[in-house]
């Protein structure tokens, strides 16, 4: 299985420079290797910094438990769970898993309709914004991935409808994008469920300028 690659751009946060990036429409072995050999050690370094600084666990990076290889192996070959990856300068910068079958829209005007559910979305730990002990490297990875989810939804005939459970530290971001916040979902560790209304889909992908 080969992935198709789309060209995109990221902002290097430290220098302000524009960097060419790639959005892959499937996670491949190389991305998992990057996760194991680059993401994990960096993540551990950040966690050590949090520990050394005595930061309350409640404020630690909230995706620290995720195991991408394990997750990917569980869904490999399944049509209902496409995956995406963002790469820049040969390094994996973000990973995402979608689900096309098991979730339906919650918004009253589109209730029960099919949507693309973002099962997992994570950026490389050096891009984490609220962690201590480092300056985030790239900005824009999360947007490229969310855009890919919306494009997949359009391709499936789901009209761009997307939903997700945001990590608490990301609630403000998805609110800023105009997604509707359904509040804490007790069936999902009280993460807030967000769904994008149709008019915000157009403005997000830039159709209305």
């Amino acid at each position: 299985m080969t992935a198709e690659v789309s060209k995109a751009y990221l902002r290097e946060a430290t220098t302000g420079l524009v960097k060419e990036a790639e959005v892959w429409d499937s996670i491949v072995e190389q991305h998992l290797v990057d996760w194991e050999t680059e993401w994990k050690p960096y993540r551990d370094m950040i966690l050590q910094a949090h520990r050394a600084a005595g930061v309350s666990l409640l404020k630690w990076p909230q995706s620290r438990h995720w195991d991408w290889r394990n997750k990917y192996q569980c869904v490999q070959g399944m049509l209902s769970t496409p995956s995406f990856a963002v790469m820049c300068s040969g390094m994996t910068e973000g990973l995402m898993l979608l689900d096309l079958s098991l979730h339906r829209c919650q918004l009253p005007e589109q209730k029960g309709k099919h949507l693309v559910y973002v099962d997992f979305l994570e950026v490389a730990p050096w891009n984490w914004k609220t962690s201590i002990g480092h300056s985030p490297r790239y900005a824009g990875v999360g947007s490229l991935l969310l855009r890919a989810a919306i494009e997949r939804s359009l391709e499936e005939g789901f009209k761009g409808r997307v939903g997700l459970h945001a990590l608490p530290q990301a609630n403000s971001w998805y609110g800023k994008l105009g997604m509707i916040d359904f509040g804490p979902d007790s069936s999902k560790s009280n993460l807030h469920y967000f769904e994008m209304p149709l008019d915000k889909i157009d403005s997000f992908i830039g159709k209305d300028g």
Binding site: M78, L79, L100, S101, H114, E156
Partner: peptide
């Protein structure tokens, strides 16, 4: 086509 694709995905899951 989308309905049949969705049916196939569900069947596979």
């Amino acid at each position: 086509t989308s309905i049949l694709r969705q049916a196939l995905r569900l069947y596979q899951v």
